[in-house]
Design a protein around this nucleic acid. Sequence first.
DNA 1: AACCATAAGTTCTATTTTAGAACTGTCAAT
DNA 2: ATTGACAGTTCTAAAATAGAACTTATGGTT
Lengths: 167, 167
Amino acid sequence: MKWDALEEEPCSLARTVAVIGDRWSLLILRECFLRIRRFDDFQASLGITRHLLADRLKKLVRFGVLRKIPYQEAPKRYEYILTQKGLDLYPIIMSIVHWGNIHMVDSRGRPMLHQHKACGHMFDPVMVCSECGEPLSAKGVHVHPGPGARRSSPVHAKALGTKVKAG
Amino acid sequence: MKWDALEEEPCSLARTVAVIGDRWSLLILRECFLRIRRFDDFQASLGITRHLLADRLKKLVRFGVLRKIPYQEAPKRYEYILTQKGLDLYPIIMSIVHWGNIHMVDSRGRPMLHQHKACGHMFDPVMVCSECGEPLSAKGVHVHPGPGARRSSPVHAKALGTKVKAG
DNA sequence: AACCATAAGTTCTATTTTAGAACTGTCAAT
DNA sequence: ATTGACAGTTCTAAAATAGAACTTATGGTT
């Protein structure tokens, strides 16, 4: 499968993976949330090759996740800053960090701690239902095809116990 | 940077990316959450090459995200099912799907809808603070080095406005 | 004027990863 | 004896990544 095909899939996960599902994009975005904005700073803090960094930044701008803002003329130089679309990736970043905190830390403990400015406490992120506010788990959720779905594949129908017409 | 180096980074995001940060792992996990369990079913529903599928399943088992369970003897065959560590990836999957729902849908609308069994409503996932229950955003959170941190890099110190000793 | 430094890339070759298809081994059913 | 299901493995070609050097534009130093 090519990257472009991923964008076209009738699946919100696949389309998001087309944007952030490679080795470097999430690490670049981590730096953005840590207030890194410039090419050489990304390069220094990540150790990514300049070639790939240029490529990934271009991709993130193309998808509207980052925006290039000029910070000086002569020579013209730009900073890369998160758009609203990019800021909206925060729950993804935080849930990834949280999973790593729970399942991938060594004996030294967490590399980073998070404090909620509003309440002042150190916290973990919790995912809840927008309607009732209760925490979510895979087993507590039913999945339904939406208007953008295509016919479910036989293999999914079997797995979900659905009946499908032949043909 | 090599994949193995990513596991060793003092960063929960990098360590999680070592597990799920490639083109296929998240798509395989999506299938797991949709109750797909067997090699040929993964292959048929994803179109992934058999080579890569075998490789990724092996990796996910090695990381303790999936477990191989025998479902028949003679010939011995296994199913791949999510461990608790794997089930804990649900918030990551859901936040990725939600971002795609908001930012990557076409005119036809969402490919999938989610219903909360507990309250009966169609819902979106919301990320809240474990301490006060209020929704989280990047700007509402302070980041602190934890016990597993290593000395912050000059570039991060600059970005965060911290003072660092020379040397 | 010549030299150095900064910033943001681009270009090059070598290595690694992935795609795509074919092949292998085990067993059951016909 | 042949066919088909299942779970991989093996092969070659194509694509992506690593690592280093090079480019362009400008400003400051000697």
